[in-house]
Write a protein that binds this DNA or RNA. Sequence first.
DNA 1: AAACAATACGACCGATCGTTCGCCTTTTCA
DNA 2: TGAAAAGGCGAACGATCGGTCGTATTGTTT
Lengths: 208, 208
Amino acid sequence: MTDSERLSDKRLIKGARARATIARHAADVASVEGLTGLSLGKLATDLGLSKSGVSTLFGCKENLQLAAVESARDVFLSTVVAPALNDERGLPRLRTLVDRWLDYVATPAMPGGCFRAATVPEFDSRPGPVRDAIGADRREWLDFLEKAIRYAQDDGALADHDAATLAFELDAVVAAANSGARIGDESALPTARRIVERLLGETDQHRL
Amino acid sequence: MTDSERLSDKRLIKGARARATIARHAADVASVEGLTGLSLGKLATDLGLSKSGVSTLFGCKENLQLAAVESARDVFLSTVVAPALNDERGLPRLRTLVDRWLDYVATPAMPGGCFRAATVPEFDSRPGPVRDAIGADRREWLDFLEKAIRYAQDDGALADHDAATLAFELDAVVAAANSGARIGDESALPTARRIVERLLGETDQHRL
DNA sequence: AAACAATACGACCGATCGTTCGCCTTTTCA
DNA sequence: TGAAAAGGCGAACGATCGGTCGTATTGTTT
């Protein structure tokens, strides 16, 4: 191992990797304090960096917020979406998707729970690039969910549901389960699981 | 009209009425900027008061946040709950309740939309008196909604639904409609109305 | 009328915020 | 190898924050 090879890790750390580390931590903090509650100085001391160093890496706070949104999207994709892609299209994939999603709410990857469930209500009334990014992420997720439902419908399942409507309803219930569970409602998650079970399973016997 | 009578209005303004005015405006601001985004100085200049004046009226920012939660609760009660109390118990009252609720989301009483939908996700991971107050308000509302559903069930309606579960689901869908509509999804509100219609109407013909 | 509590104010405090600047080191590129 | 670009730091900036103090005014109570 030459010196240049030994340094290759550090070379990666500096630059893009530093950005990713900061953005990931920013997403963690924002899941609790909100994207507005992010502080360059707090983030820097948390990671043992200087405030000005973080500032020069992202330029301004808004860019940091956008990076946090993108980092949180990556976490969601690898935690919830990726496992479902291993299953075949149709009901199996949809079930895995929803199961991983509920697990993601039950044992969150971030200290404040689901990042999207926290940031959409925070920024839904604040025009600007951050809201646009959050809105696009939400739209992307609902579209993906709707597509998974359509694949299941192609196999004859969920015939009595409109795909987009069911996607909206599933998202609403899981988001409410996230908020409810975090605010101390122990029945929120079991209730949400029951609702999801009814929504996805009712067509089998047309009603349990 | 004597001078003392002429002054009676101002006498009411000073004190409790000033508190109510400030708290009401604080709820408006918080519906957009969040309860954390509240600023004593900003509120004061908005209302033509001094920052220290507002500060002495509420003592600390946390008390102002609690007052905003209470004020928002009053708005919700008079806008959504009160109209439904004029109807008889059972399905009519439940329908009016949900209709006023959806109208409250469609044409919001506050510039940032539904106060509860904004503050529950904001504070669900922040222990303290404010989260407790928000959690209690949410619990109170879900309990009231569940009770309205039970009255409808006493008349034989919604027999295939668990009341608490249906209350949770309705709340989830309307909250998602609020966030969705505010973030630019024009289909969110119509979709939510369709879901609510299905949830409350399906027992009539067991499925439309 | 006199004492008292509640309002309301301007001024100010320490802390924290996002951002900028100069300076140096490290990496990249010609 | 040498120039250029990017990373990273300490220091400092103006602004805003919540909160406090002293003081004057108002309303209530004795």
